[in-house]
Design a protein around this nucleic acid. Sequence first.
DNA 1: AAAATAAGTCAATATGGCTGACGTAAACGT
DNA 2: ACGTTTACGTCAGCCATATTGACTTATTTT
Lengths: 180, 180
Amino acid sequence: MADVNVSSLPISPKQGQKTDDSQGNEGIPAVELIELLFFAYRDFVGDADELLARLGFGRAHHRVVHFVNRHPGMRVADLLAVLKITKQSLGRVLRELVDNGYVVQKAGDSDRRERLLYVAPKGEELARQLVALQTRRFARALNECGPGARDAARKFLASMIDPEQRAEVERLIANANGKK
Amino acid sequence: MADVNVSSLPISPKQGQKTDDSQGNEGIPAVELIELLFFAYRDFVGDADELLARLGFGRAHHRVVHFVNRHPGMRVADLLAVLKITKQSLGRVLRELVDNGYVVQKAGDSDRRERLLYVAPKGEELARQLVALQTRRFARALNECGPGARDAARKFLASMIDPEQRAEVERLIANANGKK
DNA sequence: AAAATAAGTCAATATGGCTGACGTAAACGT
DNA sequence: ACGTTTACGTCAGCCATATTGACTTATTTT
């Protein structure tokens, strides 16, 4: 599968551009971390792509199914805010998911203008499979890193989020987890 | 900028779906890590987007400038292998970068069919600015996580890469770092 | 009754991918 | 020396995902 031949690239003439920042975190130029995150994320999303492609879906459908599954009854406006896309962009994707029986919409109880979003059984199963795929990658990686890696990764990833947005994301996750 | 209103999403009825995997890494459902990585990566690439947009460039240009800067003299075929895109997809992006004086091409010395890629001063400056932006995010995050976070993050990110691809990525990074 | 809100839709456009087909120049193999 | 392969580029057409702007419909709010 996609066996590339990147061997023997020329060696960069400029030696390790440190750009360092103390605080007990010296020694690894940040550009290295930047590239690792790039490759890690590419493989991370790649897990889901094959499964989605077999259903005729793309990453946009993935995101919708995932968040609707995690937040049953969310409004369209909420979904737009989470995904940070426009309503026109969501339109086609949501319609396809509804038409194919992955997502259902119900008018709001107190406000009947709202179309509350829920996953149908098909959608829940798809979301479950997608989470399972990506969970497997995390499990493998964290096992390789040894004990404590999970907490460290959680803290690191949260810290990478824009400070102004972090509280909101944490709230989102806590809500979906059932706020235990 | 983009102040969303995601407050008060409904609470998920199904409690924390553990999907756990022992090894001293219990306690955080993987779905939480999945979402944190999603949001972290979105903000991570978002850093560059604004700067690129001002130049009329997109993420595709970012990747090209970055890797050409890190691997001066790389061949077009090497770049295609790293980015895993087709030569037709690269075509327009590379042409724009060359036309606007960010990247230069030189015929190979021993094989004159090759068009070796180099950043022009303009391209080097752009690459530097982009790395600086993303370095700033890493520095802030790692400082928040305390000592040792850098090594932990490096190990974690590397472990998230497909095992079959990891050696190749490590080689790529080592080469660019000057193989010290 | 008027205004604001939630959602959906139409149209046009941009970006970044893809496949297939073809062309050119240079290197390689027999 | 000739034919094949390689490295690169390009034309044409397609798809997926996103954008902005304008407009409609239903419903709630004021």
